[in-house]
């Protein structure tokens, strides 16, 4: 399509402005995180990085007292990673298997069951958080990774996506595999899983980011500092800002925020191509 010079210029101007609009807050947070707290308190938010990068980040990563808790940022990152990975991997596995059962096995309640699963989309975590908490508490899973991940692992969205994908796989593949002597398990592992790789990575990425950003659930579930995720950590650091007569820990709060955004961004950047492929095309 032919585009005039002016058109190209305006298009780019709009895109660049949009990009700046998105990036600036992150940049300000980063720049501000590299100053001393006294400097920041006196001069406000900073646009240019200062000279205390290693000092601030080092303290927050390795020194538990810097976060005003009994846990370092490194430990919180690890907790978040466990939650994000457990959440994403668990969801992928559970929804793949659920969709496999719904699509390939003719049992009487398959269709109603699918719609029951699907209708749980109407009941997000926030709605059922009290009963969920009750169940997990009853099982004695408070303050454990299992309790953090397990109640969130069923996924209507994932099941739906995999169901749609499986339904688009030609029946002849199943028939050929049956003639080749592949049972249900072999067919799933040898044929369906490799065919769904792009789909799996797309859902994995989405779910990882969602899991990483969970706030309410980990906040309720974990009373022990050792299990804090980084998203909760940020909240704790801000909480401690106004306690005591000290100058607030703004740089460290910003540093923690920056660190919390890095892993999801990395995951998206690294898997971006597969992610897009998985959402737009089905390879058959």
């Amino acid at each position: 399509m032919y585009q005039s010079k002016w058109r190209i210029l305006t298009n780019h101007a709009i895109l660049i402005l949009g990009a700046l609009f998105m990036i600036m807050p992150v940049w300000i947070a980063f720049a501000s995180s590299t100053h001393t707290r006294e400097f920041l308190f006196q001069n406000g938010l900073q646009l240019w990085p200062g000279g205390h990068f290693f000092e601030n980040y080092g303290a927050i990563l390795f020194d538990a007292s810097a976060t005003k808790g009994r846990v370092t940022a490194l430990e919180m990152l690890f907790n978040s990673m466990v939650l994000g990975l457990g959440f994403a991997i668990g969801k992928v596995i559970i929804s793949m298997m659920a969709a496999y059962a719904i699509v390939y096995f003719r049992f009487k309640l398959a269709v109603p069951l699918f719609w029951v699963v699907f209708s749980t989309l109407l009941l997000p975590l926030e709605v059922r958080i009290v009963p969920s908490y009750e169940v997990v508490a009853g099982l004695g899973l408070l303050n454990s990774y299992t309790g953090l991940i397990l109640p969130l692992i069923a996924s209507a969205t994932g099941t739906f996506f995999f169901r749609q994908f499986y339904r688009s796989v030609p029946d002849e593949l199943l028939e050929a595999a049956r003639l080749d002597g592949a049972g249900p398990l072999r067919f799933f592992i040898d044929i369906l899983v490799p065919l769904s790789v792009t789909m799996i990575s797309a859902i994995f990425i989405i779910m990882f980011v969602v899991g990483w950003n969970q706030y309410l659930w980990p906040l309720l579930m974990t009373t022990d500092d050792q299990l804090y995720t980084i998203v909760i950590g940020i909240k704790q650091v801000y909480n401690s800002l106004y306690e005591g007569g000290q100058i607030p820990q703004f740089p460290k709060a910003f540093a923690l925020t920056i660190m919390a955004t890095i892993p999801p961004v990395l995951v998206v950047v690294v898997f971006q191509r597969m992610f897009v492929k998985g959402l737009v095309e089905t390879e058959k």
Partner: peptide, 10 residues
């Protein structure tokens, strides 16, 4: 089969 039904990833 009519549409060959080969396993595309193999």
């Amino acid at each position: 089969f009519q549409n060959y039904a080969l396993y595309p990833h193999m």
